[in-house]
Design a protein around this nucleic acid. Structure first.
Lengths: 96, 96
DNA sequence: CTCCTTTATGCGCATAGGCGCATATTCACC
DNA sequence: GGTGAATATGCGCCTATGCGCATAAAGGAG
């Protein structure tokens, strides 16, 4: 069960999306694609993958779709996600 | 930098190998392939991937090659590895 | 040197996955 | 209904990746 989670996280676009979502807030696709520098279709598809993996939930709000980290992740998966986001952030910092 | 780690872990054979190695000991390829039920070439190649990702180290010992978890992993990567192995183990337990 | 065990690797095949492009869909607003 | 913004998706292309098979390479034992 952890495998699809890892596959979902093992992509630069998706990992960055999870990092952006890890602030706990909701973010629409257009926001994510701008923040990441991805095209629309690319961003949309990657969010579907994250959703399919159970990592995120989406909510329709007018013409926007707001994504957020799934609050019901198992503690084990949550621990993986936190560790990964932390590691990604550390790497980013050492480059900056 | 965390991305190659995640890619390396996002494979059932390699994840299982890391689980077997997470006992802290050394294990040769033939031991891993038997424990996992993989063919020899498959196991050997997967171990190369893990080595390339920096997750494991190898040591020649007579005709065997002993693999072990890289003891010099950064704390961030180590935290990811521990969380992943723990999550994999929990999933296994709930099936058993 | 020969034989056996263990490990690595070249090769070809099949599949998975990421991408752009165009188009469909959904919703707000007029 | 018509227009525009935001999102999803069908399609084809291209590359990455995992696999088996056969073979090479490395080392021990006789």
């Amino acid at each position: 069960m952890i495998l699809p989670i890892l596959s979902a996280l093992a992509d630069p676009t998706r990992l960055e999306a999870m990092r952006l979502l890890s602030d706990g807030g909701e973010h629409c696709v257009c926001e994510l694609m701008r923040g990441i520098g991805a095209t629309q279709s690319r961003m949309s598809r990657h969010m579907q993958v994250l959703k399919q993996a159970g990592l995120v939930l989406d909510r329709r709000d007018a013409q926007w779709v707001r994504y957020r980290v799934n609050p019901d992740l198992s503690p084990e998966v949550r621990a993986v996600l936190d560790a990964v986001c932390h590691a990604a952030q550390s790497a980013q910092r050492s480059v900056a």
